[in-house]
């Protein structure tokens, strides 16, 4: 039995906001694949729950008239993988979330939970960072939209206040149209594992030059990150092995991997350099580029 002390099922987002605001200790439970495991492990942090599981209004995946793709925060990874809109407009998100856990996990875990729990290894984070997704958040003061770039504060920490509910991800057309993108998860096992290093890239070309590169890593620093130095180095460069090498040399300035039981720092750095080349190359090829 889970050691839940107070449980409230929200009938809609507004009610969830109010329930959370009324109890400083209350936490959201969404797909449950993280919260219930923590409760099982004896965590006291999740004794008071506000349940948003089953709020149909948060599940929708749609394409807005202007071309923006909107993914409800409670859409499960499986629903995202099977979505025509996602596969047509932002396939890198489907590619990323298909690497999470196993089938049963993906059938219940949500992308909202994957981002809001602040996991350093969140597979969806890399893809969302390179697509510069925006987060629609409802809180006590009303609704606001914030970029996912900068949302992560540290391990397990994101910029949400008590009472905030993430309702949707929005990817603007200028952030995916014309881009080729790729995600690669390196883990010890092909399934049911957490990334040792996750790498995402999105590239837009200008003829045979890189117009814009966006590169993101998970588990390469205390939070999912974008790689400023590598991105700057790539801009305007021709499509060549030399360019890939230059990007993967400088990327060390952007990352700060640590040693853990999963992998040593040196090995993670090696992965980061290798994946930079592999993933950037694939993003460029998907944008129509040839080496």
């Amino acid at each position: 039995m889970f050691a839940i002390e107070r449980y409230n099922k929200a009938q809609n987002v507004k009610e969830a906001v109010n329930l959370l605001a009324a109890d400083p200790d209350a936490k959201i439970i969404a797909g449950g694949t993280d919260v219930l495991i923590r409760l099982h492990g004896g965590s006291k942090e999740y004794r008071n729950l506000v349940d948003i599981n089953g709020l149909a209004e948060l599940k929708e995946i749609s394409e807005e008239a202007g071309g923006a793709v909107r993914i409800g925060s409670m859409a499960t990874f499986s629903e995202i993988m099977d979505s025509d809109i996602v596969n047509r407009c932002v396939p890198v998100i489907a590619e990323a979330v298909s690497t999470v856990g196993g089938p049963q996990l993906r059938n219940t875990a949500t992308m909202g939970g994957n981002i809001c729990n602040g996991a350093v290894s969140a597979d969806s984070a890399g893809a969302l960072l390179v697509l510069q997704a925006d987060l629609e958040i409802q809180g006590i003061g009303g609704e606001r939209e914030v970029p996912v770039v900068g949302f992560h504060q540290g391990p397990g920490r994101v910029s949400l206040k008590q009472g905030d509910v993430l309702t949707a991800f929005r990817i603007k057309p200028e952030n995916y149209k014309g881009f080729g993108a790729s995600y690669y998860k390196y883990a010890m096992r092909d399934a049911m594992d957490i990334a040792t290093i996750g790498c995402a890239a999105a590239a837009r070309l200008d003829g045979d030059k890189i117009d814009e590169l966006r590169l993101a890593f998970t588990v390469a620093a205390p939070k999912p990150i974008r790689c400023e130095h590598a991105e700057k180095t790539a801009a305007g460069k021709p499509l060549s092995e030399k360019t890939l090498e230059a990007i993967s040399d400088i990327v060390q300035k952007d990352v700060k991997p640590r040693s853990s039981w999963r992998a040593a720092q040196e090995f993670r750095l090696h992965l980061i350099r290798t994946l930079t080349q592999r993933v950037v190359r694939q993003a460029i090829e998907r944008a129509g580029g040839k080496f």
Partner: peptide, 18 residues
């Protein structure tokens, strides 16, 4: 694993009320 509305899920991390 059970099927919930035909979708496989781990019933150990599914709240009964769901």
């Amino acid at each position: 694993t059970v099927l919930i509305d035909e979708i496989p899920a781990d019933s150990c991390i599914t709240l009964a009320v769901w």
